[in-house]
Design a protein around this nucleic acid. Structure first.
Ligand code: FES
Ligand code: FES
Lengths: 173, 173
DNA sequence: ATATCCAGGATAGAGAATATCCACGATAGG
DNA sequence: CCTATCGTGGATATTCTCTATCCTGGATAT
């Protein structure tokens, strides 16, 4: 069992976007550069997050990505499901109705107890992820990470974010 | 994210073996036939369970598999870990120390908050699986499944199990 | 001695995840 | 209008893991 690598990148990106000012956006290429990732591949995950209404995208020059809602309303579960898909990790192949001794399909209305137990465990996993909001991740990061790393991130964001206030705004040198 | 298919087979097999009398064993080929699976492949998973001390195997004619301990002492987590391996599903690639702005390795002694949150969720999943014992699965099965299926399984087991009492025992008919 | 069974390594094949690339539509700025 | 920038989405190549099978060797009851 393995979660796809994109999950780590997606959460980190979302955490960065949560630190933008107001309606500003950050281009996908900046996100890729900041994390040392290939832009082409990261964009795929950002698209998935956009499709899931977690991010918003603004096309055109001066465009980019930003959160679609407040960080308090975005859970890790939202992000994981957007990237990984909504299928449960345990997939019951109805092994019980194979082999000799198989009955008609009507005999299997009650779900297999093993399936029930596995999905219950998965619900517990999802519940913890659903409780963890992006806002907690961000404040945890600002409190625990090396101050130099935090400062660099801030500067990087300030340097690449796009103010997005309807029209122009002079770029200071 | 996907759990390997072998997990479903392994748990079902363990549940069947839990229904054996005393020290009797059941050959892997019978287990495969009962579930309509390829013997060659199922054996791989049974070997993993044996290596994890969940099953015991007896070589030679009249040999086979049986549980290595009481069903109350075997949890679903034991089986899942034996088949899937012990690595967590979320693997942190330390994405935070890539890209520009990376610091020396000593600056990253504190684990990344995202990693901590993901592993915490995984612990919750494992905790539920650890609480669910094989004995509960078996009694749930006997209570909920179609009586005809239960009867067939019983008969199948009675037909293929190997008594294992030190030496011979005449095969009736 | 022989037949049955498990252990474990070697090896294809299938399918998913990873990683790129490009043509397209949208938009801000000149 | 024209152009440069940026996201969208499809097509594609590559890499890995999971799936599935086979075969040699060791153990053991008859
Ligand atoms: S039949 Fe799928 S878990 Fe039992
Ligand atoms: S660096 Fe791996 S989860 Fe943050």
């Amino acid at each position: 069992m393995k979660l796809s690598d994109g999950v780590e990148a997606a959460i980190h990106c979302a955490a960065v976007l949560a630190q933008l000012n107001g309606e500003a956006t950050l281009p996908g290429s900046a996100l890729a550069e900041l994390h040392g990732l290939s832009p082409s591949y990261l964009l795929k995950h950002l698209q998935a997050l956009t499709a899931a209404k977690i991010l918003e995208s603004i096309p055109g020059p001066n465009g980019g990505y930003r959160l679609a809602k407040a960080p308090e309303r975005i859970s890790l579960l939202d992000i994981v499901l957007a990237v990984e898909g909504h299928q449960p990790a345990f997939r019951c192949g109805e092994i019980r109705q194979r082999g000799p001794g198989a009955l008609e399909a009507e005999a299997y209305v009650k779900p297999c107890g093993i399936k029930v137990a596995m999905l219950k465990a998965e619900r517990a996993w999802r519940a913890v992820l659903a409780e963890t909001k992006l806002s907690q991740i961000v404040s945890g990061y600002e409190a625990d990470a090396d101050p130099r790393a935090v400062a660099f991130n801030c500067a990087f964001i300030a340097r690449h974010q796009r103010p997005q206030g309807e029209t122009s705004l002079k770029k200071s040198k």
